[in-house]
Computed example of a mutant assay.
Amino acid sequence: MKELRRNPITGEWVIVSSARSARPVLPENACPLCPGVFELEEDYDLAVFDNRFPALSFDAPEITEEDSIVEKARAFGKCEVIMYTSEHELAVPDMPVKQLAKLIEVWCDRYRDLSRNKDLKYIYIFENRGREVGATLDHAHGQLYAFPYLPPRVERKVNYTREQYFLNGNCTLCDMLKNIPEKNIVKKGHYFVSLVPPYARFPYECHIYPLRHVSYLTDLTGEEKWELAEFIRDVAKRYDWLFEEKFPYMMMLFSAPYNTDELYDEFFHFHIEFNPPKRSKDKMKWMASVETGSWNFINPASPEEVARELREALD
């Protein structure tokens, strides 16, 4: 079964995809992402391929049931796997900047290609690193989900930044970056800044913001993309050095939506969020009732103290 079902209380779409539980079990120590094992027959540098068990797909079946108590829709969309490297042991913190710069170009290519499909409204690129966030494979890779609607948190970001723009005439992130306290900044470059925002939801949350206002990753210049590659590696490396382990995280890219007949250039500011699931080396930050049920986060750590820890991890 694969379909969308709308929550009648919140209006959110829920993706039902029972086929994802049918993933194959490979022999122990066999990585399906290494060249010649399962997914990719030949050696590669970077690669993109369709997820074999997608939650969303272009050929999703039509909805035939007419007597459902909830609204249903086709699970239309796209799910892709994005390979960072063919080297099994090479992770983001230790990758050459050149490799990550090439990865950014791959991300841009996927944005451009999929945005041509007028039925797709949001293209969401992310990486899950570590078993703690559900990653079942250690080989460095990310994923892409292309949605036919705006996911709830994206819609909330769009609505609020639009509202503030019409009230104040400015981008809310641009205003924040002009006044961000130094104690929240992890690293500042020519084009980007990494910081633990004062409003961080997770204890070791870290964001990367372009200093120049851009709404899409594809708006960045070549020099900006290179520095962004440096910043992505820098944040991941600080986690590993601070905790002396391969620290788990969720990395999420937030570009503006597509194909909605609205222009976002003035108010939506492209950004990247790192949300690690731990609050210390040995303790998890569980998403319990308050966070999950009310979407109201309680951060048990001081963002300013965490920023200091991350600064000192490499500096």
Score class of each variant (00 low, 15 high):
Arg233Phe: 08
Arg233Cys: 05
Arg233Ala: 02
Asp234Ala: 10
Val235Ile: 14
Tyr239Ser: 11
Asp240Gln: 02
Leu242Pro: 06
Leu242Gly: 03
Glu245Lys: 12
Lys246Gln: 15
Lys246Tyr: 14
Phe247Trp: 12
Pro248Tyr: 04
Met250Trp: 03
Met250Glu: 09
Met250Asp: 03
Met251Lys: 06
Leu253Asn: 07
Leu253Ser: 06
Phe254Asp: 08
Ser255Asn: 04
Ser255Leu: 09
Ser255Cys: 12
Ala256Gly: 07
Pro257Lys: 06
Pro257Met: 02
Pro257Phe: 11
Asn259Tyr: 02
Asn259Met: 08
Asn259Leu: 11
Glu262Ala: 05
Glu262Asp: 05
Leu263Asp: 15
Tyr264Val: 07
Tyr264Lys: 03
Asp265Glu: 15
Asp265Cys: 13
Glu266Ser: 11
Glu266Lys: 14
Phe268Leu: 12
Phe268Ser: 04
His269Ala: 08
Phe270Val: 05
Phe270Asn: 03
Phe270Leu: 13
His271Glu: 10
His271Lys: 10
His271Met: 10
Ile272Thr: 06
Phe274Lys: 01
Asn275Ile: 08
Pro276Asn: 06
Pro277Val: 01
Arg279Asn: 12
Lys281Thr: 13
Asp282Gln: 10
Met284Trp: 05
Met284Arg: 13
Lys285Ser: 08
Lys285Ile: 05
Trp286Arg: 09
Trp286Met: 12
Trp286Gly: 07
Met287Lys: 06
Met287Glu: 08
Met287Cys: 11
Val290Tyr: 13
Glu291Ile: 00
Glu291Asp: 04
Trp295Arg: 13
Trp295Ile: 06
Trp295Gly: 01
Trp295Glu: 12
Asn296Lys: 14
Phe297Asn: 02
Ile298Ala: 03
Pro300Trp: 09
Ala301Phe: 05
Ala301Val: 03
Pro303Arg: 01
Pro303Asn: 01
Glu304Trp: 02
Glu304Met: 03
Glu305Tyr: 10
Glu305Asp: 12
Val306Thr: 11
Arg308Phe: 10
Arg308Trp: 10
Glu309Trp: 12
Glu309Thr: 00
Leu310Tyr: 07
Arg311Leu: 09
Glu312Met: 11
Ala313Cys: 06
Ala313Val: 01
Ala313His: 02
Ala313Glu: 00
